[in-house]
Design a binder for these strands. Structure first.
Lengths: 125, 125
DNA sequence: GTCGTTGCAAAGCGTTTGCAGCCTA
DNA sequence: TAGGCTGCAAACGCTTTGCAACGAC
């Protein structure tokens, strides 16, 4: 990344102002409000550049395409609403999870996610 | 599913005898030992039929294509080896995980997975 | 013989890449 | 002006679907 462009500004702003991890499609939709004919390929390329620079973190949930949030957040997990498909941040972490693995396995990390209905979708149901 | 065929036998046996969840490709490779020119499309179609019949359960891990294991196993979680890419079953479950979600969210379930190196890959390293 | 099932090839779908033109520095 | 960046369209990898032939019952 050598140059500052309005496409990159729009993409970065979209991610920064969202309070939750966004999929490439979500980023594209939001950033398109600023730049009408923004190409989806540019979104993918720019996300990758941000990842390599360490500005973005990839959020993988089971059975879901990757989403992205700004990096540097402290250890946390996610809640996936099965109705609106949005992903929310959750603070905290259940401890002692590594103990579940066999003794001769090396545990490098863990992923935990909850799913169900978010407050908004619960009210709408 | 109305008829018994050697393709379905081979696919079911592959899954049954594996002690871990298998991807469609893994199923195809294993079952191909029985039936040389087994088509990958048949594997996908048959897996779907087994899913609909409830004989199979889908195992989704973050950032991974779906894998499949026979259904009816008691609540458990998985370990993903980043070296050999295999997925292993783990017994047990860290309790009280639902408490992480906001109070006004409805938690329907959780997914927990560990990643690192399995015993075999650790020895090889 | 019927019709559920199969293998092959084509179609889908989300993501990546090639390339000519654009635009930042 | 140079060359990084963009949009478009083609290419990709994995999964699904269409279709004619096969084979279980």
């Amino acid at each position: 990344m050598k140059r500052k462009t309005k496409q990159r500004d729009a993409i970065w702003n979209a991610i920064l102002h969202a309070a939750r991890p966004l999929s490439p499609q979500e980023v594209h939709e939001i950033a398109s409000a600023d730049i009408a004919q923004l190409g989806i390929a540019t979104v993918y390329r720019t996300i990758r550049v941000f990842l390599e620079k360490g500005q973005l973190a990839q959020v993988d949930l089971p059975g879901q395409p990757p989403r992205y949030e700004k990096s540097g957040l402290k250890h946390h997990h996610h809640f996936h609403c099965r109705q609106c498909d949005r992903v929310y941040e959750m603070e905290g972490c259940a401890g002692n999870i590594s103990a579940l693995a066999p003794d001769d396995f090396v545990v490098e990390g863990h992923a935990l996610s909850l799913f169900g209905l978010c407050a908004a979708c619960q009210g709408a149901a």
